[in-house]
Design a protein around this nucleic acid. Structure first.
Lengths: 159, 159
DNA sequence: CTCCTTTATTAGAGACATCTAATTAGAGAG
DNA sequence: CTCTCTAATTAGATGTCTCTAATAAAGGAG
């Protein structure tokens, strides 16, 4: 019965899912390259994960996520994407930095917060009437350091 | 020359700052209680931090942050607060959960993202014309699972 | 088949952060 | 001063994740 994974293990699960999604074989070498760790580290991790039935690991053959591992990886990925999108789309953070931050923070976003963050993004970015004006105002504020009088006026006209 | 702290050490610095702010003496026992670790763990941490001149630690006397340690702690706190506020004020996450999530994620928020997040919160919560309407719409969306037609219409009147 | 190269694994060590158990220091009661 | 209690420290162990160095397996070139 698995109830928790360390951030490290979650990273491996997420990476395995990515590889699978791209139809790349998940080899020790490949994972090691992508995660910037040495091969023995990967072997250690795969053994750990297979003890928990999150991956199917047989020496010298490509690694496969189990159904359980896939679910877990997908979950990590959702958290990653929610955070990354928020940073990029709302906060206008540089995509590389956003990805890095998301990659670290993803392990600590609780289910409730994830759900809210996702809904927030939907609310803002999938508004049936197009992107809300305040997003523009926010971008202006980021850039100039002050609020756009014009947008401020327009945005509040209806309030 | 200190360039980085582990999340753990950042937590101690933050906690020390809190104690100081409340004028409570920072003893091993107190820190141990507050951080839910045993006393030897605290001693270990204080030794580590004092090696880096982040705290003044002399056996059997109250622990003090150095100027450097204070700065670092304050920085952690800023990240904590930005995240917590976002979760509470924007995403309406339960305050306890928000605090927990913030406490974990705070260690991984880059300076750029912090700056943007803080500005975002200012922009939204310190709007000179009061809280923007879309926040209400968002709360509605969280609660009902769908957009409020009324607010949608009003919010867009000016766009 | 033998040699070489690449890939993977094992063995062993180290950093970090935690614990338990044992010890020491200090403070207050008598 | 001695006894006792609490606070603090030391010693030693553990789990996680990483590394390097050494070894093993597998696949191709000849």
């Amino acid at each position: 019965m698995v109830v928790k994974q360390t951030p490290t293990m979650e990273d491996y699960l997420e990476r395995l899912l990515m590889l699978q999604a791209e139809n790349k074989p998940a080899t020790v070498t490949e994972i090691s390259r992508m995660m910037c760790v040495k091969m023995p580290t990967v072997v250690y991790a795969m053994k750990k994960l297979s003890e928990q039935n999150l991956v199917e690991y047989n020496k010298r053959s490509p690694i496969k996520l189990t159904r359980k591992g896939k679910r877990w990886g997908a979950n990590v990925f959702r958290r990653h994407e929610a955070l990354r999108h928020f940073l990029v789309e709302i906060l206008n953070v540089d995509p590389d930095i956003a990805a890095e931050d998301a990659c670290k923070m993803e392990h600590f976003l609780s289910p409730v917060s994830l759900e809210r963050l996702s809904k927030f993004l939907d609310f803002v970015l999938k508004c049936p009437r197009g992107k809300p004006e305040w997003l523009e105002g926010l971008a202006y504020y980021f850039e100039k350091g002050e609020r756009s009088e014009e947008l401020l006026a327009r945005c509040q006209r209806g309030g």
